[in-house]
């Protein structure tokens, strides 16, 4: 429990904390800015860990449990680091009708993970989205931020396999 302090020292001298501080400052270090701040932490660090949650809570003078409650309410916030690669599968209605559940099942089977999980070697995170709003191109998946429309199962698996290969090559 730290008493209110307008500008608390960040947990480390990592430069990314400055971006987080800037967001909090823009919102006057008010609790209202909690979600905005969490967005910034997520963007800067890739996920929200206990350390960052504690820092944000103390800086905004917000209760820890409230910060945790907010962090776990919203789908876009993640409390665990993502894999080196991400594959987002859209579960919107149009994609559903066009057979995306089969693709999802195939990827889950191939990589031995469930939606929302990361492979144990940190290679791939499989994420589902409620709807990416690209229904005209259904079914849709996103590979490392690059959206791919009218995707077919073989095509998707090939793209994922290519990611793995590229990584193996780099390691070798």
């Amino acid at each position: 429990m730290t008493p209110r302090n307008e500008k608390l020292e960040p947990p480390s001298d990592d430069k990314r904390w400055r971006i987080v501080q800037a967001t909090m400052q823009r919102n006057g270090y008010e609790r209202d800015g909690l979600i905005e701040t969490l967005h910034t932490v997520q963007e800067s660090f890739g996920y929200l860990d206990d350390e960052s949650l504690r820092y944000v809570a103390a800086s905004l003078n917000a209760p820890l449990s409230q910060v945790y409650g907010v962090s776990t309410f919203y789908h876009l916030f993640s409390l665990k680091p993502a894999g080196r690669h991400t594959c987002v599968v859209c579960l919107g209605t149009a994609c559903y009708i066009k057979g995306i559940p089969h693709l999802l099942k195939e990827i889950e089977r191939t990589y031995g993970i469930k939606a929302g999980e990361t492979t144990s070697d940190g290679h791939l995170s499989l994420i589902t989205a409620r709807c990416l709003g690209s229904c005209g191109l259904a079914p849709v998946a996103v590979f490392n931020g690059e959206i791919a429309g009218k995707i077919e199962i073989e095509h998707a698996l090939a793209r994922l396999a290519a990611l793995r290969e590229a990584e193996d090559v780099r390691q070798a």
Partner: peptide, 19 residues
């Protein structure tokens, strides 16, 4: 404010501090 609710839907859980 030790307690709050985490998660959503049927996964909601009352938690203390950082769970």
């Amino acid at each position: 404010h030790t307690w709050d609710v985490m998660g959503r839907g049927v996964e909601c859980l009352v938690i203390s501090d950082l769970n």
